[in-house]
Design a protein around this nucleic acid. Structure first.
Lengths: 202, 202
DNA sequence: GCGATAAGGTAGTAATCAGTTACTATCCTC
DNA sequence: GAGGATAGTAACTGATTACTACCTTATCGC
């Protein structure tokens, strides 16, 4: 009966807080999310938040840690058991898009965090997330090059940059249209061009 | 002698304000730029700003208008006199990258404005800017398709989305590395993949 | 069922923000 | 060069922010 469970153990409360921030950032500018708004969304007074987090920055850090773990896990799992590098890249791409559709606030938070001037813990977390993401991409791309599936002349760094940029472009379009579902619809066509750009000559 | 010209005509003062915002957003999170910071950067007291703009939102609107005019002008000019659609796209791409390198704060401001929940005037200005940008892209792409230079099966909308996303990916890499010049260096490799993705079979 | 403790509520605080006001300096025109 | 108009200053205001001090209540091991 968690009907009126106003009291939650600390770790659960922290998890609920992270979920609240992720939900809120789907419908409003992440940089404008106040601690009061977070508290209201999880039906708790604002002061209660600071029983579980030393400050607001720590909340962001926890949110970014959640994102990093879930996103990397997802793109790791989805490529397992696939031989073709192109198939792996496509699966990663679609998994990434699906993740963003489920949590539309995530790319906004990440981009917002990246452009902070001061190197906050949350910012560093985003940086390592994207670097790890890039590492995984380069491994797959290199595999595809040696197997002959991808163009031998391909610049792996550029291909990784473009991969992430491709998702970013879809995000921007969805922000423009105010319609997240659009990403799912447009993803195949956009990836088709990318695939053609990196594949070996047919 | 504009040595100590503390008094400027209103339109000049507005232009200086726009320039100040563009400069500031190159080195700090645009959403954290205060009217006090803008005023300080242009050696004027904070209150003086409101003699030329009714509110802060109007400042952002003026900034985005400046960006829209300059960016569209630039990508329009650069493609004139070129027959090849691919050459036009490449010229537009490089011009865009060059623009961002000169004004690194611009993509940050635009992305930040796009993810506002409320449809502010500045946000609408960004939306129409990107839509016009997309229109110009689609015209060139369609031309390339009929001339046989681009793949006949190409999805023009997807190609336009990817074009913008490609720039966006470079921006993200430069934010990661904290080095804007990197964009200029990485741009050719990234565009090469894009070109291969949209070009007709060689 | 009792007491320690973990979790939440109430009601603040100081700092910072956009915007305003009353006054002053500078410019421009006749 | 007088005088109105324009531009700028300094000090302020109310609203909002992250964060805190103090007290109350629920939970759980014994």
């Amino acid at each position: 009966m968690d009907k009126h469970s106003k009291h939650l153990p600390a770790d659960e409360r922290r998890a609920v807080t992270v979920a609240a921030v992720i939900e809120l950032s789907g419908s409003q500018n992440p940089s404008e999310i106040t601690t009061a708004a977070i508290a209201q969304h999880m039906r708790v007074t604002q002061g209660a938040l600071f029983r579980h987090f030393p400050n607001k920055e720590a909340i962001w850090q926890a949110v970014m840690a959640w994102v990093a773990e879930r996103l990397l896990n997802r793109i790791d799992r989805v490529g397992q058991g696939l031989d073709s590098a192109l198939a792996v890249l496509e699966a990663m791409f679609m998994a990434h898009v699906e993740f963003v559709v489920e949590h539309p606030g995530v790319p906004r938070m990440m981009f917002g965090e990246l452009q902070r001037a001061e190197p906050t813990p949350a910012k560093r977390m985003v940086q390592t997330l994207i670097q790890r993401y890039g590492d995984r991409l380069r491994v797959v791309i290199d595999k595809g090059k040696t197997s002959g599936e991808l163009s031998a002349a391909l610049d792996a760094d550029a291909a990784a940059t473009l991969f992430i940029g491709t998702v970013q472009g879809l995000v921007m379009q969805s922000l423009l249209a105010g319609d997240v579902e659009r990403m799912r619809r447009d993803a195949p066509g956009v990836f088709a061009i990318y695939r053609r750009g990196i594949g070996s000559t047919r």
